[in-house]
Design a binder for these strands. Sequence first.
DNA 1: ATAATAAAAGATATTATTGTCTTTTATTAT
DNA 2: ATAATAAAAGACAATAATATCTTTTATTAT
Lengths: 144, 144
Amino acid sequence: MFSKTCEYAIKATIFIAQQRDGITCVGVKEIAKGIHAPEYFVAKILQELSRKKIVSSVKGPNGGFCMSEAQMNKPVLDIVLLIDGDGLLNSCVLGLEHCSNINPCPMHHEYQKIKQSVRNMLEKNTILDFNNLVLAKKAVLFMN
Amino acid sequence: MFSKTCEYAIKATIFIAQQRDGITCVGVKEIAKGIHAPEYFVAKILQELSRKKIVSSVKGPNGGFCMSEAQMNKPVLDIVLLIDGDGLLNSCVLGLEHCSNINPCPMHHEYQKIKQSVRNMLEKNTILDFNNLVLAKKAVLFMN
DNA sequence: ATAATAAAAGATATTATTGTCTTTTATTAT
DNA sequence: ATAATAAAAGACAATAATATCTTTTATTAT
């Protein structure tokens, strides 16, 4: 479904959103531990997320990553589009170049429904929504 | 969604199913052209499909690949499970090891619905079903 | 029987993804 | 001002996915 990079990106943002004040920073090390992901790799991903303003970053002592309320209220779709592109939502499930309603691949119509429900679920759920589940201990970001 | 290998596998079987008599063989070259896929690569994939009895193969002159009625009536899910495994249907969307209803990742419940509709669509549609669309010229296996 | 055919099997090459390490730059506390 | 900190940037390494080529084996038409 998602690339590993995208999985880490989603989990990292949900983790960062645990600091609700929008000011307190979380370092890469802590994030990597909190989502059981390779530290250097999430560092790279966070660079990209920071460049594209999905998260904010602060250098130096007490630095790290944080998110404003506005950033937390973005749909998870934003992250997916940034990292994996729109392939999941717009590409043909069988890889045809110009698959469409009028010139479809055999799976096109069946797959349209699924695409739509994927888009819908990524659009309607924000990073904050998912973080709320974690804060309420109704969901986790890693396991042993 | 699917790996390239899996996309080719699905398209190749749908293409082979165009020979409805279950006897007439189609060669790799023709299949590769018919689905716009690299010849040697589909050859490899067809080897695996043949080994697992998704398709039948015949060596020598007039040889190639064909499918019996029983084979055509298998759900596309069989191919997906063989090539990509059950990750799409059983793995956690965020990559957690033991994600479940009682110990879920934040996206778990939302994703369950999608997984279910993917499984459903792969289970209820057979290779023959999709081939019917192609025969009826209501769908294509390649584009220019 | 023999030559031609086509898949099976095995080996190799290329590219993309994932993961790691080092150096540089900006910030902050002292 | 300076040293310590932590992200940014760039380079590199390992692995997996995709793609290609060669040799072997089985089959069939002659």
